[in-house]
Simulated scan of single mutants.
Amino acid sequence: MLPALPAAWAVSGSVSGVGGRGGFVADLRWKNGKVTRVTLKSVGGRDTTVVAGATSHRISLEPGQSVIPGDFA
């Protein structure tokens, strides 16, 4: 989920409000270059699939709902 993360930021960090396709917004936290937590919020989207490495999570939300689709640690 962080293919363009600069090496200087890889130790740890977070970002909020990243727009995603289909009407979703993501908040991400990472440590050692790997995502440790993701919160997805539907702005207007309904269904999406989150893929991280070999793991995928199918998400279905009503607009305004949010979900933490699993522990990526």
Rank of each mutant, 00 (worst) to 15 (best):
P6H: 09
G45V: 05
G22M: 14
G70C: 00
A73T: 13
K31W: 04
G23M: 12
A10Y: 11
G33E: 07
P6L: 09
R58Q: 06
P69I: 09
R46E: 09
K31L: 07
A26R: 06
G70F: 02
K41A: 14
G33W: 11
G22E: 10
Q65L: 05
T48R: 05
V35A: 12
V11D: 15
T48C: 13
S42W: 05
W30C: 05
S60I: 06
G33P: 08
K34M: 10
G13V: 07
S60L: 02
R58S: 04
P69K: 01
A52D: 14
W9Y: 13
A54V: 02
T39M: 02
L40R: 01
G33Y: 14
G13I: 12
V25L: 08
V18P: 01
H57E: 02
P69A: 06
D47G: 08
L61R: 02
T39N: 06
G22Y: 10
R46V: 12
N32S: 08
A4M: 13
V11S: 11
V15G: 15
S16G: 09
G17N: 09
G19N: 13
V35W: 01
N32E: 14
T49Q: 05
V15H: 07
T36Q: 10
V51D: 03
P3I: 07
I68Y: 01
A10W: 04
Q65M: 11
A52L: 04
V18E: 12
Q65R: 13
T39V: 15
G53V: 00
K31H: 08
G17Q: 05
A10C: 02
K41F: 05
A10Q: 14
V11P: 00
V11G: 05
V38R: 00
